[in-house]
C-alpha cells in the first residue's frame, strides 16, 4: 500500500525544517513520521506514534536528548528506547517499550529516510533548498511530468506522501530563487489542473 521502494532513500524534510526543540511531522508512502534533533544536532526519524497508547509523537516535546510524549510524558531517548515512565517512576523500563525508529541520513541540506535504504542518498548538486511544494498528485505522475518537461536550473527530489500527494523539493542551481520557486508553483498548477 505504501508505494515505497525498499532500498531507496527519500527526502522527508529539509534540514532547516528541524530547528532545535521542534518535532517535525510528515508522511512517507502513507507512514506518519516524526523527526527531531537531539542536542548534538543529530536527527531522529521515528514512526509518529507512541507505542504506549498511539498518540502522535509530533504532539510531544523535545526535552534535551529525549522526546516526551504529550499524553503520559513517557520519555524516549535517541535510540528510541523508553527511558522514563512518570506514572511508575521506580519501574525499570522494559526494553520492549521502544519507538519505531526509521533510518536517517543527512545530505545536500535534506533529511533522508526510507525502508531499509542502501548506500548513501543520491548525490545532488550544491544549491539552496527551496521551500517544499506539495502537489495533490501521486509521485509517479509528478515524476512522469518532469521527464516530459524538465525544469531547468533545478535539481528535484520527490517525497511520496501517500497515494494521492507528493512533496517536491527543489535545489536551485543558480541564485534566482524566485524564478525557481515560480517554476515549481507552475508545475503544481499544471498537474493539479490536469484532468
Amino acid at each position: 500500500m505504501s508505494g515505497l521502494q525498499p532500498g531507496v532513500w527519500y527526502a522527508i524534510a529539509a534540514e532547516h525544517d528541524l530547528p532545535k526543540d521542534h518535532v517535525y511531522r510528515t508522511m512517507l508512502g502513507g507512514h506518519e513520521l516524526a523527526a527531531w534533533r537531539s542536542t548534538d544536532g543529530a536527527v531522529h526519524v521515528w514512526e509518529d506514534r507512541c507505542p504506549h497508547r498511539g498518540v502522535r509523537f509530533s504532539l510531544g516535546e523535545v526535552v534535551g536528548d529525549e522526546l516526551r510524549c504529550q499524553y503520559h510524558a513517557w520519555r524516549f531517548g535517541k535510540t528510541g528506547a523508553c527511558t522514563f515512565i512518570p506514572a511508575q517512576p521506580d519501574l525499570k523500563v522494559p526494553r520492549t517499550i521502544h519507538a519505531a525508529v526509521w533510518p536517517v541520513a543527512l545530505s545536500a541540506g535534506l533529511v533522508w529516510s526510507g525502508i531499509e535504504p542502501t548506500g548513501a542518498p543520491p548525490e545532488l548538486p550544491p544549491g539552496a533548498v527551496l521551500r517544499a511544494i506539495p502537489i495533490a498528485r501521486a509521485a509517479a505522475s509528478v515524476a512522469h511530468a518532469l521527464v516530459k518537461e524538465p525544469l531547468s536550473g533545478l535539481a528535484l527530489v520527490l517525497q511520496p506522501l501517500d497515494e494521492t500527494a507528493t512533496i517536491v523539493r527543489g535545489i536551485a542551481l543558480d541564485d534566482d530563487l524566485v524564478r525557481a520557486d515560480h517554476a515549481l508553483l507552475a508545475l503544481r498548477r499544471r498537474l493539479e489542473q490536469a484532468a
Binding site: R49, R53, R56
Partner: peptide, 9 residues
C-alpha cells in the same frame, strides 16, 4: 480532545 484526536489508529 487534541490527545484523543491524535491517537493512531
Amino acid at each position: 480532545k487534541p490527545i484523543l484526536e491524535n491517537q493512531v489508529p
